[in-house]
Nucleic acid binder design. Structure first.
Length: 649
RNA sequence: GCUGUAGUAGCUCAGUGGUAGAGCGCGUCAUUGGUAAUGACGAGGUCGGGAGUUCAAUCCUCCCCUACAGCACCA
């Protein structure tokens, strides 16, 4: 029998007969490792302990202490165990697929009856029984024909389809958890008892399309989360609770920022507090973009379909546009209009007015553009995904040789804005040509190269997101990570050779003849609505002082201080601080609680002593201790904090 | 849009085939207090909309709207 050499992570090599399994290697290294081992990585591939190794390889044996591998195995085995539990309880259920995802797994089932939330407890109970049985996990390699026959005989049509879709004719791996069998790539644990029975939880049931295709059957998906230990599960559930507390819809109500109602689905009624945040942010962005060399414009809301036909949007997005037709009795002539779903075609109209010279380029045009899109009802989510929104939109008309510098300048601009708003780090995704696209391959090659060179030149790391570009051109997407680790795509930078062509934009070059400009679409916040929603969730409502809608409440402790309360408020207002008086006949405890719930960053309490001494008792949101300070000093300090970051000395 | 769940007072929610209840909030009065809820009293709802079954519907059935979770979508 041939000898092979297996190299351990510490560099030591051991000799074995070819065909030895990783489990046997583990047991050979030490008895305890043999017991604790759960899987192995062989030449970079994560495999079962029962997997035979036929040639020289690097090998690492994993135990439950190897978080990454252990989580994968636990979640993967739980997917199988759950599917087995479901089929044991409801034998007429058809199985499909059940992959591992972040924090857990899901499994999609086809069953006539709907699962109910109560069913989850039943399934969980059954799963624990299976785990307690410590059933062996077996694997066999079958050829395709046998596997297909097996699933046909067992009336599992989805599995048949899956096998038929696997390219090539390599043999398939079949796994058994006890008597229950599934087609699977592996790897798995050795027996069901290795899965921690107290570190998983079934979370929810939802519909999901078979193979992610909305034209195909709707299956029932059950989601679960799982970890290697129950403390980790607990920590995860706490995190979810924490996230729920930050929900912008809840905070939006508690802080009296905005509301939404049935009569205007997907549109925001901004209340005074929320609108203060909005306008404060908009004022900031206006200063920033002016400083970055943009000219600001404004364009119509209701635009004839002819323009959308010319731009190509009518064809592609008609169903997602609000169509506006004036009543025939009133209209002088019949016209079909659409609420603008985007600003780009309108900006080209401005560009097209008069002759442009190469000397005018790059022309950076910005608009706080209000757009309306008829988003599918299921897509709406608070103020994060709405039907009426305002983008911090901008289009740069430029020559090809200017793309690189404009891209670099935009990344600087965006980094500076994000930093001011409390996000030090962001990620760049480089999205390339999608399947459905316009333009020639040469043009795509060209523009993708130009954009990639531009990011490289900007010296920022990026991740390739192949096939995710816009239909007209490649793009960069900018992702922020919030305080509890969630990612948000906000900024974008897109190169578009298509729209200037379609809408006939041109400039006169140095050579005296007409040329096509490139159009760069870019946004930093994305939309004010979404970004504010994200800011609320990121800060759990504790917005930075300069953005906080109610910055200071001056609360009287006794009515004797009322006059002084007003004086303090006036002093602060004169310093540009948003201050208000609370002289209600309530106890100070009550006022402190109410304004704390309302996320007011600073409460200044004043009673007899403060009136005497011209001081205020300062209480910062979230802090228990207070400090008594001179009014003048506090006013100066708060004036600095109230200044937007770009205006600070 | 699809699957599922839900909609009762401003908010959070209980409840019932015989036209509704709590806590908070709101109003009035008393209370003048020292950093996350002072007390008493009071007002407030055609039970999401429409149709049907029934002597009788907030409750049962059907349709619609909206929200929530996920999927699909996101110029």
């Amino acid at each position: 029998m041939a000898q092979i050499s297996l190299t351990l992570p510490d560099g030591n090599a051991r000799q074995y007969n070819a065909g030895i399994t990783a489990g046997e290697v583990a047991a050979d290294i030490s008895k305890s490792l043999g017991k604790k081992a759960i899987s192995a990585t062989v030449n970079g591939a994560h495999v079962d302990l029962a997997w035979p190794i036929e040639e020289d390889a690097d090998i690492a044996i994993h135990t439950m202490a190897d978080e990454e591998q252990a989580n994968e195995l636990v979640r993967h085995d739980l997917a199988h165990i759950m599917a087995r539990a479901v089929q044991e309880i409801w034998p007429d259920t058809k199985v499909t697929i059940g992959p591992v995802i972040k924090d857990g797994w899901y499994y999609d089932f086809d069953r006539t009856e709907s699962f109910t939330p109560e069913d989850l407890a039943t399934i969980e109970k059954k799963m624990k029984e299976i785990i307690n049985k410590r059933d062996e996990v077996r694997t066999e390699v079958w050829d395709r024909a046998r596997a297909i026959k097996h699933y046909q005989d067992n009336d599992e049509p989805y599995k048949v389809e899956l096998i038929e879709a696997i390219p090539g004719d390599e043999p398939l791996r079949m796994y058994w958890h006890g008597d229950w069998q599934d087609l699977c790539r592996g790897p798995h644990l050795q027996h069901t008892g290795q899965v921690p029975g107290d570190a998983f939880k079934l979370m929810s049931i939802a519909g999901a399309y078979w193979r992610g295709d909305s034209d195909r059957a709707m299956l029932q998906r059950i989601y679960g989360v799982a970890f290697t230990g129950k403390e980790k599960l607990k920590a995860h559930l706490n995190m979810l609770e924490e996230a729920a507390k930050r929900d912008h819809r809840k905070l939006g109500r508690e802080m009296d920022l905005f509301h939404m109602q049935e009569e205007a689905p997907g549109q925001v009624f901004w209340h005074p507090n929320g609108w203060t945040v909005y306008t404060e942010l908009q004022d900031y962005m206006r200063r920033k973009q002016r400083a970055a060399g943009y000219v600001e414009v404004n364009t119509p809301q209701v635009v004839d379909r002819k323009l959308w036909e010319a731009s190509g949007h009518w064809d592609k997005y008609q169903e997602h546009m609000f169509i506006v037709e004036v009543d025939e009795d009133h209209a002088r002539e019949k016209a079909v209009n659409a609420l603008k779903p985007m600003n780009c075609p309108c900006h080209v109209q401005i560009f097209n007015q008069g002759m442009k010279s190469y000397r005018d380029l790059p022309l950076r045009m910005a608009e706080f553009g209000s757009c309306n899109r008829y988003e599918p009802s299921g897509a709406l989510h608070g103020i994060m995904r709405v039907r009426g929104f305002t983008q911090d939109d901008g289009h740069i008309f430029c020559r090809e040789d200017q793309i690189e510098a404009e891209c670099a300048a935009f990344i600087d601009y965006l980094a500076s804005v994000y930093k001011d708003l409390g996000f030090e780090k962001f990620e760049i995704m480089f999205a390339t040509r999608p399947e459905k696209r316009v333009g020639t391959e040469e043009s795509w090659d060209h523009v993708e190269n130009a954009l990639e060179n531009a990011i490289r030149a900007a010296g920022h790391p990026y991740t390739l997101d192949a096939g995710e570009g816009a239909f007209y051109g490649p793009k960069l997407d900018f992702k922020l990570t919030d305080a509890i680790g969630r990612e948000w795509q906000c900024g974008t930078f897109q190169v578009d050779p298509n729209l200037p062509e379609r809408l006939g934009a041109s400039y006169i070059g140095e050579d005296g003849s007409k040329h096509r400009p490139y159009m760069l679409h870019r946004a930093c916040l994305g939309s004010f609505e979404r970004f504010i929603g994200m800011l609320i969730e990121n800060s759990a409502g504790k917005l930075p002082f300069w953005l906080a809608p109610r910055q200071v409440v001056v609360a009287s402790i006794t009515s004797e201080a009322d006059e002084y309360v007003l004086e303090v408020v006036e002093t602060l207002k004169a310093e540009g601080v948003r201050a208000e008086a609370d002289m209600r006949n309530e106890k100070i405890n009550y006022k402190v609680r109410e304004h704390s719930v309302g996320k007011v960053p600073v409460i200044l309490a004043v009673g007899g002593r403060e009136v005497e001494e011209k001081t205020v008792s300062v209480r910062r949101l979230g802090q228990k201790q207070t400090s008594v300070q001179a009014l003048s000093a506090v006013a100066q300090e708060l004036a600095v904090e109230a200044t937007p970051p770009d205006l600070r000395a």
